[in-house]
């Protein structure tokens, strides 16, 4: 049998899973852990709706082999929350009107989280480049960029 057993930290807790070598991280997280925040938008790496954090860096859930989650720190959009409350980026997306149909929102939140971890005070241009792999059909991106700016501002 070719299945692989993996162990990793998921949204702060140690977990394990058995996955097929051809299975992607996206389906593992959605189907085995019921974390349906990350979405299947294209399955080809072009839309960003499946974005997750691997060891703090944003990556595509659809093109990351589930087997390579082994030993890593994995965070999904569900893991961006601050306990029961929304995390900074999530709250900003809500507040700035950056959520319409919301299908792209988890991917945007994850991409933004990675961006802000690397550039805590990003320029608008850095934000736009940081989100260039996340497609949105509803918002035109304006409010999303604004939300990331808001989330980056230091808390008074």
């Amino acid at each position: 049998m070719s299945d692989v057993t993996i162990a990793f930290r998921l949204n702060g807790r140690m977990v394990s899973a058995t996955v097929a070598p051809t299975q992607a991280a996206l389906e593992c997280l959605r189907d085995q852990f019921a974390l349906t925040g990350a979405k299947l938008g294209c399955g080809e790496g072009e839309c960003g709706a499946c974005a997750i954090l691997l060891d703090g860096q944003a990556a595509l859930g659809c093109l990351t082999p589930a087997a390579d989650l082994d030993g890593r720190e994995v965070r999904t959009v569900e893991g961006l929350r601050d306990g029961p409350a929304l995390g900074r980026i999530q709250a900003a997306l809500v507040h700035e009107g950056a959520v319409q149909c919301g299908f792209c929102t988890p991917g945007m939140a994850v991409a933004a989280a990675a961006l802000l971890a690397e550039h805590p005070a990003p320029t608008v241009e850095q934000i736009r480049r940081g989100l260039e792999g996340n497609l949105c059909r509803c918002t035109g991106y304006v409010a999303i960029v604004q939300a990331v700016q808001t989330a980056a501002e230091p808390t008074p």
Binding site: G37, L86, G102, A109
Partner: peptide
């Protein structure tokens, strides 16, 4: 803000 936005931003929306 949209009433459904928090759940969508949280990734809870099914």
């Amino acid at each position: 803000p949209k009433l459904d936005a928090p759940d969508k931003a949280a990734g809870r929306t099914r």
